[in-house]
Computed example of a mutant assay.
Amino acid sequence: MIFFAILLGLFFSYFRIYLYFFPRKRLTILMYHKVEKEGDTELTVSAENLEKQFKYIKEKAYRSVFFKEIHSEFRKKIIITFDDGYYNNYEFLPSLLQKYDLKATIFISTSFIENGYDENKMMGFEDLKKLSSNFFEIALHSHSHQNFRTLSNSEIENDLKLNMQILESHQIQYSKVLAYPYGKYPKNGAEQEKLFHTLKKLGIDFAVRIGNKINYFPNAKPYELCRIDIKGEDSLQRFKLKLILGKLKLF
Protein backbone atom coordinates (compact mmCIF):
# COMPACT_ATOMS: atom_id res chain seq x y z
CA MET A 1 0.00 0.00 0.00
CA ILE A 2 2.82 2.37 0.91
CA PHE A 3 4.69 1.41 -2.26
CA PHE A 4 1.60 2.15 -4.35
CA ALA A 5 1.20 5.53 -2.64
CA ILE A 6 4.83 6.36 -3.40
CA LEU A 7 4.39 5.42 -7.06
CA LEU A 8 1.24 7.52 -7.30
CA GLY A 9 3.04 10.44 -5.71
CA LEU A 10 5.92 10.13 -8.17
CA PHE A 11 3.46 9.98 -11.07
CA PHE A 12 1.67 13.13 -9.90
CA SER A 13 5.00 14.89 -9.39
CA TYR A 14 6.67 13.81 -12.64
CA PHE A 15 3.73 14.78 -14.81
CA ARG A 16 2.82 17.75 -12.58
CA ILE A 17 -0.74 16.46 -12.31
CA TYR A 18 -1.17 18.52 -9.13
CA LEU A 19 -1.31 21.64 -11.33
CA TYR A 20 -4.56 20.36 -12.82
CA PHE A 21 -6.20 21.25 -9.49
CA PHE A 22 -4.67 24.75 -9.43
CA PRO A 23 -5.64 26.20 -12.82
CA ARG A 24 -4.50 29.74 -11.95
CA LYS A 25 -0.98 28.45 -11.35
CA ARG A 26 -0.98 26.32 -14.50
CA LEU A 27 0.73 27.59 -17.65
CA THR A 28 0.71 25.44 -20.77
CA ILE A 29 2.96 26.44 -23.68
CA LEU A 30 2.57 24.58 -26.98
CA MET A 31 5.26 24.40 -29.66
CA TYR A 32 4.50 24.10 -33.37
CA HIS A 33 6.51 24.71 -36.53
CA LYS A 34 4.91 24.25 -39.97
CA VAL A 35 1.28 24.11 -41.09
CA GLU A 36 0.35 22.59 -44.44
CA LYS A 37 -2.89 21.60 -46.14
CA GLU A 38 -1.75 18.02 -45.67
CA GLY A 39 1.02 16.99 -43.31
CA ASP A 40 1.80 14.51 -40.59
CA THR A 41 5.56 14.74 -40.15
CA GLU A 42 7.34 15.64 -36.94
CA LEU A 43 7.46 19.37 -37.74
CA THR A 44 4.40 19.69 -39.98
CA VAL A 45 0.81 19.60 -38.75
CA SER A 46 -2.07 19.55 -41.21
CA ALA A 47 -4.46 22.48 -41.24
CA GLU A 48 -7.31 20.06 -40.54
CA ASN A 49 -5.66 18.63 -37.42
CA LEU A 50 -4.59 22.06 -36.23
CA GLU A 51 -8.18 23.25 -36.47
CA LYS A 52 -9.35 20.26 -34.43
CA GLN A 53 -6.77 21.11 -31.78
CA PHE A 54 -7.71 24.79 -31.70
CA LYS A 55 -11.39 23.86 -31.48
CA TYR A 56 -10.65 21.59 -28.50
CA ILE A 57 -8.62 24.32 -26.76
CA LYS A 58 -11.56 26.69 -27.13
CA GLU A 59 -14.15 24.13 -26.02
CA LYS A 60 -12.18 23.33 -22.86
CA ALA A 61 -12.06 27.00 -21.87
CA TYR A 62 -8.31 27.47 -22.08
CA ARG A 63 -7.43 31.18 -22.14
CA SER A 64 -5.00 31.92 -24.94
CA VAL A 65 -2.53 34.70 -24.05
CA PHE A 66 0.62 36.37 -25.33
CA PHE A 67 3.81 36.32 -23.28
CA LYS A 68 3.22 39.99 -22.51
CA GLU A 69 0.02 38.86 -20.75
CA ILE A 70 1.70 36.01 -18.89
CA HIS A 71 1.12 37.51 -15.46
CA SER A 72 -2.65 37.71 -15.95
CA GLU A 73 -4.80 35.84 -13.44
CA PHE A 74 -6.76 33.87 -16.03
CA ARG A 75 -7.54 30.24 -15.31
CA LYS A 76 -5.95 27.62 -17.59
CA LYS A 77 -3.60 29.98 -19.43
CA ILE A 78 -2.17 28.62 -22.64
CA ILE A 79 0.44 30.11 -24.97
CA ILE A 80 0.51 28.82 -28.53
CA THR A 81 3.90 29.20 -30.22
CA PHE A 82 5.30 28.63 -33.70
CA ASP A 83 9.03 28.61 -34.47
CA ASP A 84 11.09 30.02 -37.35
CA GLY A 85 8.64 32.10 -39.43
CA TYR A 86 7.43 29.79 -42.20
CA TYR A 87 5.22 31.34 -44.86
CA ASN A 88 2.60 28.64 -44.29
CA ASN A 89 2.02 30.18 -40.85
CA TYR A 90 1.02 33.37 -42.67
CA GLU A 91 -1.28 31.40 -44.98
CA PHE A 92 -3.16 29.27 -42.45
CA LEU A 93 -2.98 30.83 -38.99
CA PRO A 94 -4.82 34.18 -39.31
CA SER A 95 -8.18 32.64 -40.22
CA LEU A 96 -7.91 29.82 -37.67
CA LEU A 97 -6.89 32.10 -34.81
CA GLN A 98 -9.68 34.52 -35.63
CA LYS A 99 -12.25 31.71 -35.92
CA TYR A 100 -11.46 30.34 -32.45
CA ASP A 101 -10.45 33.66 -30.85
CA LEU A 102 -6.94 32.45 -30.04
CA LYS A 103 -3.50 34.07 -30.08
CA ALA A 104 -0.12 32.85 -31.27
CA THR A 105 3.48 33.85 -30.66
CA ILE A 106 5.86 33.38 -33.59
CA PHE A 107 9.56 33.11 -32.73
CA ILE A 108 11.57 34.66 -35.57
CA SER A 109 15.08 33.78 -36.64
CA THR A 110 15.98 36.85 -38.68
CA SER A 111 18.57 35.07 -40.84
CA PHE A 112 15.79 32.78 -42.10
CA ILE A 113 13.69 35.80 -43.06
CA GLU A 114 16.63 37.48 -44.82
CA ASN A 115 18.26 34.48 -46.48
CA GLY A 116 15.74 31.63 -46.47
CA TYR A 117 15.99 28.29 -44.71
CA ASP A 118 16.83 25.23 -46.81
CA GLU A 119 13.97 24.63 -49.25
CA ASN A 120 11.34 26.23 -47.03
CA LYS A 121 9.38 29.30 -48.05
CA MET A 122 9.70 31.82 -45.23
CA MET A 123 7.77 34.95 -44.40
CA GLY A 124 9.27 38.30 -45.34
CA PHE A 125 9.47 41.35 -43.11
CA GLU A 126 6.43 42.86 -44.83
CA ASP A 127 4.46 39.68 -44.11
CA LEU A 128 5.40 39.93 -40.43
CA LYS A 129 4.18 43.52 -40.31
CA LYS A 130 0.84 42.50 -41.81
CA LEU A 131 0.06 40.03 -39.01
CA SER A 132 -2.65 41.44 -36.78
CA SER A 133 -1.46 42.36 -33.29
CA ASN A 134 -4.82 41.10 -32.02
CA PHE A 135 -3.83 37.55 -32.86
CA PHE A 136 -0.03 37.53 -33.25
CA GLU A 137 2.96 38.32 -31.10
CA ILE A 138 6.48 38.32 -32.57
CA ALA A 139 9.38 37.14 -30.39
CA LEU A 140 13.05 36.16 -30.65
CA HIS A 141 14.59 32.96 -31.98
CA SER A 142 18.16 34.27 -32.40
CA HIS A 143 19.54 35.59 -35.67
CA SER A 144 21.61 32.70 -36.99
CA HIS A 145 19.70 29.82 -35.33
CA GLN A 146 22.77 28.08 -33.96
CA ASN A 147 22.84 25.72 -30.99
CA PHE A 148 23.68 27.88 -27.96
CA ARG A 149 25.70 25.02 -26.48
CA THR A 150 28.24 25.45 -29.27
CA LEU A 151 28.61 29.24 -28.93
CA SER A 152 30.51 31.38 -26.47
CA ASN A 153 28.54 33.73 -24.28
CA SER A 154 29.77 36.75 -26.24
CA GLU A 155 28.72 35.10 -29.52
CA ILE A 156 25.25 34.48 -28.10
CA GLU A 157 24.99 38.07 -26.92
CA ASN A 158 26.02 39.48 -30.31
CA ASP A 159 23.65 37.14 -32.13
CA LEU A 160 20.69 38.17 -29.97
CA LYS A 161 21.53 41.84 -30.35
CA LEU A 162 21.50 41.37 -34.12
CA ASN A 163 18.18 39.50 -33.90
CA MET A 164 16.64 42.50 -32.12
CA GLN A 165 18.34 45.17 -34.23
CA ILE A 166 17.09 43.68 -37.50
CA LEU A 167 13.51 43.46 -36.26
CA GLU A 168 13.72 47.04 -35.02
CA SER A 169 15.24 48.27 -38.30
CA HIS A 170 12.17 46.90 -40.10
CA GLN A 171 9.86 48.51 -37.50
CA ILE A 172 8.52 45.18 -36.31
CA GLN A 173 7.13 45.20 -32.79
CA TYR A 174 8.30 42.23 -30.75
CA SER A 175 8.26 40.88 -27.22
CA LYS A 176 11.56 40.25 -25.47
CA VAL A 177 11.01 36.53 -25.14
CA LEU A 178 13.45 33.98 -26.52
CA ALA A 179 12.96 30.47 -27.85
CA TYR A 180 16.33 28.72 -27.71
CA PRO A 181 17.33 27.39 -31.15
CA TYR A 182 16.80 23.61 -31.11
CA GLY A 183 15.63 24.08 -27.51
CA LYS A 184 19.28 23.95 -26.41
CA TYR A 185 21.14 26.11 -23.90
CA PRO A 186 24.20 25.53 -21.67
CA LYS A 187 23.73 22.95 -18.93
CA ASN A 188 27.05 23.69 -17.24
CA GLY A 189 26.35 25.76 -14.13
CA ALA A 190 28.86 28.54 -14.77
CA GLU A 191 28.05 28.84 -18.50
CA GLN A 192 24.34 28.76 -17.78
CA GLU A 193 24.68 31.50 -15.17
CA LYS A 194 26.57 33.68 -17.67
CA LEU A 195 23.88 33.12 -20.28
CA PHE A 196 21.05 34.02 -17.92
CA HIS A 197 22.96 37.15 -16.85
CA THR A 198 23.29 38.13 -20.51
CA LEU A 199 19.58 37.57 -21.16
CA LYS A 200 18.72 39.77 -18.21
CA LYS A 201 21.17 42.46 -19.39
CA LEU A 202 19.50 42.45 -22.82
CA GLY A 203 16.09 42.93 -21.20
CA ILE A 204 14.81 39.51 -22.19
CA ASP A 205 12.00 38.60 -19.81
CA PHE A 206 11.52 34.90 -20.53
CA ALA A 207 13.13 32.08 -22.47
CA VAL A 208 11.57 28.78 -23.47
CA ARG A 209 13.07 25.35 -23.97
CA ILE A 210 11.18 22.15 -24.78
CA GLY A 211 10.97 20.02 -21.64
CA ASN A 212 7.44 18.78 -22.45
CA LYS A 213 6.00 19.75 -19.07
CA ILE A 214 3.22 21.97 -17.80
CA ASN A 215 4.68 25.03 -16.07
CA TYR A 216 3.96 26.14 -12.55
CA PHE A 217 3.71 29.91 -12.86
CA PRO A 218 4.99 32.23 -11.61
CA ASN A 219 8.20 30.33 -10.91
CA ALA A 220 11.80 31.15 -10.13
CA LYS A 221 13.18 30.04 -13.51
CA PRO A 222 11.95 32.52 -16.15
CA TYR A 223 14.67 31.38 -18.60
CA GLU A 224 13.70 27.71 -18.43
CA LEU A 225 10.00 27.67 -19.22
CA CYS A 226 8.89 24.38 -20.78
CA ARG A 227 7.02 23.92 -24.03
CA ILE A 228 5.05 20.89 -25.17
CA ASP A 229 6.12 19.67 -28.59
CA ILE A 230 3.06 19.07 -30.77
CA LYS A 231 3.98 16.81 -33.66
CA GLY A 232 2.27 16.40 -36.99
CA GLU A 233 1.59 12.71 -36.35
CA ASP A 234 -0.16 13.35 -33.02
CA SER A 235 -3.76 12.15 -32.98
CA LEU A 236 -6.39 14.32 -31.33
CA GLN A 237 -6.45 11.91 -28.38
CA ARG A 238 -2.69 12.19 -27.99
CA PHE A 239 -2.99 15.98 -28.18
CA LYS A 240 -5.58 15.93 -25.38
CA LEU A 241 -3.27 13.84 -23.21
CA LYS A 242 -0.38 16.23 -23.85
CA LEU A 243 -2.52 19.13 -22.64
CA ILE A 244 -2.93 17.30 -19.32
CA LEU A 245 0.38 15.49 -18.92
CA GLY A 246 2.84 17.29 -21.17
CA LYS A 247 5.30 14.46 -21.55
CA LEU A 248 3.65 11.12 -22.31
CA LYS A 249 6.64 8.90 -21.62
CA LEU A 250 8.59 8.27 -18.43
CA PHE A 251 11.85 7.88 -20.35
Rank of each mutant, 00 (worst) to 15 (best):
M1P: 13
L7V: 15
L10C: 14
F11H: 10
S13E: 13
R16S: 12
R16Y: 12
R16M: 06
L19C: 06
L19N: 04
L19S: 05
Y20T: 15
R26C: 04
L30G: 05
M31H: 04
Y32C: 08
H33T: 05
E38K: 09
S46C: 12
A47G: 05
E48T: 15
E48Q: 12
N49G: 08
L50G: 00
Y56C: 02
V65Q: 03
H71W: 11
H71E: 15
S72N: 09
I78R: 03
I80W: 00
I80F: 00
I80A: 01
T81G: 04
F82Q: 07
D84L: 06
D84R: 05
Y86E: 14
Y90S: 03
Y90F: 15
Y90N: 06
F92E: 07
L93A: 15
S95V: 07
L97M: 09
Q98T: 12
D101L: 05
I108K: 00
I108N: 00
T110P: 11
D118A: 08
K121V: 15
E126C: 03
D127K: 04
L128E: 08
K130D: 14
S132P: 09
S132K: 06
S132F: 01
S133F: 08
N134Y: 01
I138M: 03
Q146G: 00
Q146A: 08
N147V: 06
F148K: 00
L151Q: 14
L151M: 15
S152W: 04
S154V: 12
S154N: 13
I156M: 08
I166Q: 11
L167P: 01
Q173H: 06
Q173C: 03
Q173K: 09
Y174G: 04
K176R: 15
L178I: 08
P181R: 01
Y182H: 13
G183V: 04
Y185G: 00
Y185W: 10
P186A: 11
K187E: 13
N188Y: 07
N188F: 08
G189F: 10
G189V: 10
E191P: 01
F196Q: 03
G203Q: 05
I204L: 07
I204R: 04
D205P: 06
F206D: 05
R209M: 12
I210P: 00
I214D: 02
N219S: 15
A220W: 05
K221A: 05
P222F: 01
Y223T: 13
E224N: 07
E224Q: 15
I230Y: 02
I230P: 00
I230Q: 00
D234T: 09
R238N: 09
L241F: 12
K242N: 08
L243P: 04
L245P: 04
L245M: 11
L250N: 05
